[in-house]
Design a protein around this nucleic acid. Structure first.
Length: 812
DNA sequence: CATTCGAGCTTTTTT
DNA sequence: AGCTCGAATG
């Protein structure tokens, strides 16, 4: 290991600057340095020309190398394309789609193309359109797993106990709902946090496990054995709310297909060709979903790179890619190893790093490009200097004519972004943070959406709870509690419960009045859904509810921005045909505003950077504990370490011409400064291909080499500690459990269907007769004077004549 | 019912 | 360090 240490070459800061300036000039006159994704294949020896002549093929096939072309043209039967970073993966996928359409093998709507992220889906759509023209515009089945599942689910929602208008809950809603479930079960949510249960249930769903099939051991692990029961309750609540969380979109869709062969057949027949992007990131349930649909025609093409599998923590199984050939017998496997993105040194560094992983399918990337600049490793004193130094380097690049949008800073964890942001603000460097809080995650947007959800889907309790006292209207916990009591007892939505309660004397007059007003507002707005364009309606709702006023009166700094965001929301929704389409879109794919305001430096996480490329990439924070992340190591042992290494590999391979790695000796974690150890990944970089440089800020710190030697041993030994071994074991257990994770079995439950409309279920006979003695929590004892459905008029001994709901009294 | 203050906790990554 | 949540107070 010692010999793999990069040679420490210390030079003076000014020398570094001079050298770099020269380099920049060279790079910028380089023909490959131009912007654009996946530069066209520079074909040596006229192979492309010959191929083209031989085939006389369509233009979209031009410029593909032999392997790419093979991957595009192998239309029949299962195909696995192992595509290394920068080998033209997306190009193959999009060209393949164009090819299928051009050959008349299938119409655009008969092609299923699945991606992992919305970003990838959008890009694919755009690029197919570029290749195949407007024919491809209507590819309704190009999207993320979640988006496509949703689409299928909406069409057959009744079959799984939902209505097709079901709401999609995000993580926030999920946790709030979970809290209610825990509360109802009297479980101390200090000891068993809702968050943890939500996480657990999500993990189960990712493995395709419904409550019935959760392994007993795992179910028992939460809340003294109540894990599975809570899962069941949670699912019941979701059905009552007519809602699905992210996991459900896939799980319920799978259940739908499994339990309804005729529906399955319909989709198997429809999807003549299936394409899957980033196959290495599929988790167990996505895999089951895919296999089920692909069983029909077997024309499935999966593209992936086992070295870029970075979502193991979310249940992704690299094994899916490793066993493709077993699951799809006769599959063609095509490797794309020619890299068109990065220069030689960068590729060598990436290769040297990833070679430390075991259990790879093994690919060797190569390039005809020049060797280029060696990736640099820079040690700095602390994270502040790191930000300063990176800022300085960027300014140098800019002065040399580099474009800001060709520069990215890729961090391991989002908290690292802050320091760069602060620095760039003082420098006046234009930057943008990618993957920060999403547009629709902002409070004001969520509030506005909650109003819309209340109007469009009266069963949406979570939405109702969110805004029933926003803006403040004097309704609080006490009122909510009463509503909850009634709603839970009658198994009806909150708003319906509220509808009953404004008729009776349970609530204090003031609250009753306010609530009645609110409900009638909702009813009035609901009546306007089909009358008014959704944008106009939204403005009206926000105005009349006093919501916008609330922010106008708010004198805090963000208030103006929030109002701005609301305007943006209204503007965005006007582009949709109707409110439903908009709500659908926003819960799955809405992204932060995309106004282009000139070129900017991108700051994002390594995960967010997958699939992107930049001229220059900064990789700060290569320190033990941060990268590789401690948590990853603790939770998944060696598997975790390998995933971190793949993340590093992804980071390095984002760079076309320059990769700049940083590590700091001191970093502030949770507010306090801690001394850190350089990442072990630094040791793994092939010495001949990296250059160790001093920080551009010139603060003399040459501690890198020494600290490495000093700490070498502790790395070696940490592998044999009991804790580590335990962690490793745990990792393996979970993985094997996931593998065997089945689902099968018939549908359970008679779904708890409820009416979404505010229709009185008062036709039900009352259990009380006139004259009966009753007891009421608040009003005490009394005698029933009249019965009207579930409403009772009671003469209370002390409180006098009151109208109460039956569910609030008991026989005395 | 709203506001204020203190305690405790968190910080990977995403649909 | 900063934030969210809960308890105490007005």
């Amino acid at each position: 290991m010692l010999e793999s240490l990069p040679k420490a070459r210390i030079m003076g800061a000014s020398a570094v600057i001079r050298a770099r300036r020269n380099r920049s000039r060279i790079a910028l006159t380089d023909p490959f340095s131009r912007a654009g994704l996946e530069a066209p294949a520079p074909q040596p020896g006229g192979i492309a020309a010959r191929a083209r002549a031989a085939a006389g093929g369509p233009r979209y096939l031009e410029g593909l190398n032999a392997e790419q072309r093979a991957a595009v043209e192998a239309l029949d039967g299962p195909v696995l394309v192992l595509a290394g970073a920068g080998t033209g993966k997306t190009r193959v996928l999009t060209t393949r789609i164009a090819h299928i359409i051009a050959e008349g093998r299938a119409r655009p709507y008969e092609i299923l193309a699945v991606t992992f992220t919305n970003k990838a889906a959008r890009e694919m759509k755009d690029r197919v359109a570029m290749l195949a023209g407007p024919v491809a515009e209507g590819m309704p089945w190009l999207g993320t797993f979640h988006a496509i599942s949703t689409k299928i689910l909406r069409r057959h929602a009744e079959l799984v106990g939902l209505k097709s208008s079901f709401t999609i809950l995000d993580t926030d809603d999920q946790i709030r709902l979970m809290k209610q479930v825990l509360q109802a079960e009297n479980i101390d949510d200090k000891r068993w946090p809702a968050r943890a249960l939500a996480f657990q249930i999500d993990a189960w769903k990712n493995r395709g496990l419904d409550p019935k099939h959760v392994p007993a051991g795992e179910a028992a692990a939460f809340a003294n054995g109540k894990g599975a029961a809570l899962y069941t309750l949670y699912q019941e609540r979701l059905k009552i709310l007519n809602a699905a969380d992210f996991g459900d979109l896939l799980l319920e869709c799978l259940r739908l297909l499994r339990d309804n062969p005729e529906v399955l057949k319909q989709y198997q027949d429809r999807f003549k060709y299936m394409l899957v992007d980033e196959y290495q990131d599929t988790n167990a349930i996505q895999y089951m979903w895919l296999r089920l649909l692909a069983q029909g025609r077997q024309n499935v093409c999966c593209v992936g790179d086992d070295d870029q599998s970075i979502y193991g923590w979310r249940g992704a199984e690299v094994d899916n890619i490793l066993r493709f050939e077993t699951d799809f017998p006769g599959a063609k496997v095509i490797r794309l190893e020619r890299n068109y993105r990065s220069t030689g040194h960068i590729l060598a560094v990436a290769a040297g790093l990833i070679a430390h992983n075991e259990g790879r399918l093994g690919k060797t990337l190569f390039t005809d490009d020049e060797a280029g600049h060696k990736p640099t490793v820079t040690g700095v004193w602390d994270s502040e200097e790191e930000a300063r130094s990176v800022g300085e380097e960027i300014e140098q690049l800019a002065r040399a004519g580099g474009a800001y949008d060709e520069i990215a800073i890729l961090v391991r964890a989002s908290f690292q972004m802050r320091e760069f942001e602060e620095r760039f603000i003082t420098l006046g460097l234009p930057y943008r943070v990618i993957g920060g809080p999403r547009f629709y995650e902002r409070a004001e947007i969520r509030d506005a959406l909650a109003y819309l959800r209340c109007v469009a889907q009266p069963a949406d309790d979570l939405a109702f709870e969110r805004i029933f006292n926003t803006p403040r209207r004097g309704l609080g916990d006490a009122t909510l509690q009463l509503l909850h009591d009634h709603s839970r007892r009658q198994r009806i939505p909150l708003m319906q419960a509220a509808q009953f309660m404004v008729e009776t004397d349970e609530l204090k007059p003031k609250q009753r009045q306010v609530l009645r007003g609110l409900l009638s507002d909702f009813a009035r707005w609901a009546g306007l859904i089909d009358q008014k364009p959704q944008g106009e309606l939204t403005e009206m709702i926000l105005e009349e509810s006093g919501y916008t006023d609330m922010w106008r009166k708010d004198r805090t700094a963000e208030a103006a921005g929030r109002l701005e965001n609301l305007k943006e929301l209204v503007r965005a929704m006007e582009e949709f045909p109707d409110l439903g389409a908009f709500l659908e879109h926003i819960s799955l794919v809405m992204e932060a505003e995309g106004k282009d305001v000139g070129p900017r430096v991108s700051i994002m996480t390594l995960h967010g950077a997958k699939g992107l490329e930049f001229e220059t990439v900064f990789l700060p924070g290569w320190e033990e504990g941060l990268f590789p992340h401690q948590r990853s190591l603790d939770e998944s042992g060696r598997a975790g370490l390998e995933e971190e290494r793949r993340l590093a590999y992804v980071g390095v391979t984002r760079a076309r011409r320059r990769a700049k790695i940083y590590f700091a000796t001191n970093r502030r974690i949770h507010g306090l400064w801690q001394t850190t150890i350089p990442s072990r990944f630094l040791d793994e970089l092939p010495a001949g291909h990296v250059e160790v440089v001093e920080a551009a800020t010139g603060a003399a710190y040459g501690g890198y080499a020494q600290s490495r030697f000093a700490n070498m041993d502790s790395f070696g030994s940490s592998y044999s500690t009991p804790g580590w071994r335990r962690a490793q074991q745990r990792g393996e257990e979970t993985r094997s459990a996931a593998k065997s994770g089945g689902f099968g079995g018939a549908a359970r439950r008679g779904p708890l269907q409820i009416e979404g409309e505010l229709v009185a279920s008062s036709s039900a006979e009352s259990g009380f007769a006139k004259g009966a003695r009753v007891f009421h929590q608040k009003f005490g004892y009394g005698a029933v004077a009249a019965v009207d459905g579930n409403k009772l008029t009671v003469d209370f001994d002390k409180a006098g004549r009151k109208m109460v709901l039956e569910s609030f009294v008991q026989a005395a």
